[in-house]
Amino acid sequence: MDKLAMTDALMAAKLAKGLSWETIGSDLNMSPVWVASACLGMNSAPAEKAKAIAEYLEVGPEVATALEVYPTKVWDQAVPTDPLIYRLYEVVGVYGDTLKQVIQEKFGDGIMSAIDFSMEVDKIEDPKGDRVLLTLNGKFLPYKSW
Rank of each mutant, 00 (worst) to 15 (best):
M1W: 10
L4C: 01
M6D: 00
T7P: 02
A9H: 04
M11E: 10
A13K: 03
K14N: 09
K14H: 11
K17H: 11
G18H: 08
L19H: 08
E22C: 03
E22S: 14
T23M: 13
T23D: 12
I24V: 15
I24T: 06
S26E: 15
D27H: 15
D27M: 08
M30V: 07
A36G: 01
A36K: 13
S37F: 04
M42D: 10
M42I: 03
M42S: 11
S44I: 03
A45R: 06
A45Q: 07
A45V: 01
P46Y: 11
E48I: 04
K49C: 06
K49Q: 09
K51F: 04
Y56K: 06
E58Q: 15
G60Y: 06
P61F: 12
E62S: 09
V63A: 12
T65L: 13
E68N: 10
V69E: 15
Y70Q: 10
Y70G: 03
T72N: 09
D76W: 05
A78R: 14
A78Q: 15
V79G: 01
V79I: 14
T81I: 11
D82C: 02
Y86I: 00
Y86L: 14
R87N: 13
Y89L: 02
Y89C: 00
Y89A: 04
V92P: 02
V94D: 07
G96E: 06
D97R: 00
L99C: 02
Q101A: 10
V102M: 13
I103T: 13
E105I: 01
K106N: 13
F107N: 14
I111P: 01
S113D: 06
I115S: 05
I115W: 01
V121P: 04
V121A: 08
K123E: 06
K123H: 10
I124P: 05
D126Y: 08
P127T: 10
K128I: 03
G129A: 06
D130K: 08
R131G: 10
R131I: 13
V132N: 05
V132F: 05
L133F: 05
L134H: 01
L134A: 01
L136C: 06
L136M: 12
G138D: 07
P142H: 04
K144L: 03
K144D: 00
S145D: 08
S145Y: 10
S145T: 09
